[in-house]
Structure formats: C-alpha cells, structure tokens
C-alpha cells in the first residue's frame, strides 16, 4: 500500500471531510498515527478549515449529558487513568471507555512512528500492514508488523469474542507447502488491560510484503491441533502490504 503524493492528499481531504469508506478510514487513522508527514498534512487541512466552525451558532446540549459522561468515564474513581508510557513500542492509547461508546469502534493504531522521508527505509525495515476482512463489513482485523522488533500488533474491530475457542493467526506464503501458525490472538496476548481486543506479540517469521497473506481462523482453545494448518473456519484473510 504505497500511496503517491496525490493519493495521500486525496485521502487526507476525504478523511477530514468524511467522504471516505470504512476501510480507508482505518488506513487514514493508521497513517495519521504512524506517519508524521500524513499527520502534518491532516493537521494543516484541519487548521485551514477550522475557522469555518466559528460561524456555527452555539447550541445547548441537553441537561444531564455531562453527568452521563462522568458516569461512563469514572464510575468509581476520582482520578484520570495514568499512562505508563505514551511513546514506547506497541503502546496503545487506552481508549476503552470511548470505544465502548462507539457502535462500531474505529481503529486507531499507536505504534512507533515511521521514519521520515529524509531517513530512507529499506524493504526489510519498513513496517508492514495487513487489513483482514470478511464479506460483512464492518468486522475488521488490522495487523501491523514491525520488522525491527519482529512483533505484530493486531486490533480486532467488532469481532465477537469466542466463548469456547481462540483466534489463531496464520501466515500463508507463496511457494510454501502450507500455512504457518504465527500464534494465538487470545487473552494472554492482549496488550491492554482495558478489555479491548488488541494484541501484541512476537512472531517466528519475518513477513514479506506482497508475497505473504495473513489469515485468522477460529480454533478450539489452545489453537489448531495440527501443524498442517487451521482446523476451524478461516474468518479473515488479508495481503501483507507496506504501510
């Protein structure tokens, strides 16, 4: 997924205006959080258009709305959540409270920033991304791979949690005999303690853009019982592409 200058500009404008598909929204969110140049472009467009808001006359929200918000965000605590580290690898902004209010959570990736264009990247260094979806949007799985740490960060959106099973991540590589398990997306690997479906873990193989396909299957607890591939249904697949 390498975007030209014009494509990035068009994506940024569509992102700010809202004339955007749910898939492109996820991509734009990921770019905004990981690509400083794209974030700068979005910020410039937002700053340019922001004065238009001044002309909108105020409108009072209903009484009691703030009480509702306070009940939602801090049912038993007087303190805001403390963040251990806002810059470290794999850090995810703990937006569980906000996400719980969204019917279909929009995805927001918070990974180490991409290098700027002045620091050329090799293919081996570039972060890679796979967008996995089934036929019935908006269920989505976004996986970002960082070659430096050989870790993936996966975020599942609107995907129900299996009561009696685990999701398993698979690598399907051109030329290989069969799928290779990259690990389980289960509670032990959840990177946040806020109940959101975010997972961070190291994988045993380097991913290659374009040559690799990722898949997520629903398996019995503990994963597929065979090394040959999924036993359960494959729910999501997606091509690995440069972020």
């Amino acid at each position: 997924m390498s975007l030209s200058h014009d494509d990035r500009q068009a994506l940024a404008i569509s992102y700010v205006l809202g004339n955007i598909s749910s898939e492109d929204l996820i991509i734009a969110d990921a770019l905004r959080d990981n690509d400083p140049e794209f974030a700068k472009l979005v910020n410039e467009i937002e700053a340019w258009l922001a004065p238009l808001n001044e002309q909108t006359p105020d409108k009072m929200p209903p009484a009691g709305l703030f009480d509702d918000i306070m009940r939602e965000i801090s049912p038993g605590s007087d303190a805001a959540p403390l963040l251990a580290n806002d810059n470290g690898p794999g850090f995810w902004r703990p937006a569980a409270i906000a996400a719980s209010l969204i019917a279909v959570a929009a995805l927001s990736l918070h990974l180490p920033s991409l290098n700027t264009p002045s620091e050329p990247q090799t293919a081996e260094q570039s972060q890679l991304m796979a967008l996995l979806a089934d036929d019935s949007q908006p269920q989505l799985v976004v996986i970002v791979y960082d070659p430096a740490s050989q870790k993936v960060v996966a975020k599942m959106s609107n995907v129900p949690w299996p009561e009696d099973g685990d999701y398993e991540l698979w690598l399907i590589r051109d030329g290989e005999a069969g799928p290779q398990s990259l690990g389980l997306l289960n509670i032990e690997k959840q990177s946040g303690n806020d109940g959101s479906k975010e997972f961070e873990f190291a994988i045993p193989s380097q991913l290659n853009p374009s040559a690799d396909l990722l898949a997520v299957s629903l398996e019995p607890k503990g994963g597929s019982g065979t090394s040959k591939g999924p036993q359960g249904p494959v729910l999501f697949t997606g091509q690995v592409t440069p972020l």
């Binding site: 709305l65 965000i73 805001a80 902004r93 409270i97 906000a98 209010l101």
Partner: peptide, 11 residues
Amino acid sequence: MKIVYATLWTN
C-alpha cells in the same frame, strides 16, 4: 458528545 469528552478525559 459522549465519545468526544470521554476521549478527552481518557487521553
């Protein structure tokens, strides 16, 4: 509105 101010607080 709830999402915005909850996000403002959470972040």
